[in-house]
């Protein structure tokens, strides 16, 4: 069927960016602010439902000797608990649920985005930036509440000559303020780039005659390999986001560099 569509038309219909489009499924407006239920919202709810379902089933029996699902949930729990303890110390314990939520939400969003025809929530900069901003603002508030004015010593590296201090304070301040942007862009860019690549190579399979024809096999193989890579990236980016949040939290809790 693809043979009858001109390549220009095909390119238009199968733009690698088409998968990121936001479609309003139920237009909603609250006080002039658009809060429409979109395909993004739908997949956020799918992520929420999937996590809730998975963990609910996992802890349903609370068996002494865990089954596979329970073991997976426990491993995730201990993975994040250890991450928080190792990176933020015991003072980070109260923030464990938040870090866990952050990690599992990003992980599930990344992974379900790899299901064909689904939508990747985390491929949108506004979503990743919102989460990064919550981490940034939250961590700053925690730091200020815990240490008051002493929080500002975070921007003065210890053992620095007085003459260099102003310059370094500016650098430290910029590197601190840029944190939410790097955090957000890292996740967004990884997801977007990965999905564009998958789409492009998937398009090659079709334009080379489909996966049942010899020339189509090479891009198909690449697509399969990329898919495996993307699974790793999906986990890795969720991990990186959570670890960096822990490190920022550690800075706010303990102030030392």
């Amino acid at each position: 069927m693809g043979l009858f569509i001109s390549s220009a038309q095909a390119a238009e219909n199968h733009s690698p960016l088409e998968q990121f489009e936001i479609r309003r499924l139920v237009p909603l407006d609250v006080g002039g602010v658009d809060v429409s239920f979109t395909n993004s919202s739908l997949w956020m709810i799918v992520v929420l439902a999937a996590i809730t379902f998975f963990l609910s089933v996992a802890v349903q029996r609370q068996a002494l000797v865990p089954g596979r699902l329970q073991l997976t949930a426990e491993m995730a729990y201990q993975f994040i608990a250890n991450m928080v303890r190792d990176n933020a110390g015991s003072a980070g314990r109260p923030y464990f649920p938040f870090i866990f939520t952050l990690f599992i939400f990003i992980l599930f969003a990344n992974i379900q985005g790899l299901i064909p025809y689904s939508f990747t929530v985390t491929s949108h900069i506004i979503v990743t930036f919102s989460m990064a901003l919550v981490v940034f603002v939250g961590v700053t508030i925690i730091g200020v509440v815990r240490h008051g004015a002493r929080f500002l010593t975070l921007f003065v590296p210890s053992g620095v000559p007085i003459a260099l201090a102003p310059l370094l304070v500016v650098i430290e301040l910029i590197s601190y303020l840029v944190r939410p942007i790097t955090l957000a862009v890292r996740l967004f860019a990884n997801m977007t780039a990965g999905h564009i690549l998958l789409k492009v190579f998937g398009g090659f399979v079709v334009s080379l005659g489909g996966f049942y024809v010899i020339p189509g096999i090479a891009p198909l193989a690449v697509t399969v390999a990329l898919y495996g890579l993307e699974l790793i990236v999906a986990f890795l980016q969720a991990y990186v986001f959570a670890v960096l949040s822990c490190l920022y939290l550690n800075d706010a809790l303990h102030l030392h560099h």
């Binding site: 936001i22 979109t38 956020m44 709810i45 809730t52 939520t101 900069i125 506004i126 919102s130």
Partner: peptide
Amino acid sequence: PQLDITTFTAQIFWLVVTFVVL
């Protein structure tokens, strides 16, 4: 599509809702 600011409020709203519920 990621740079289309008209979609931002809806995304932020639903992210906050789902994230807080989660």
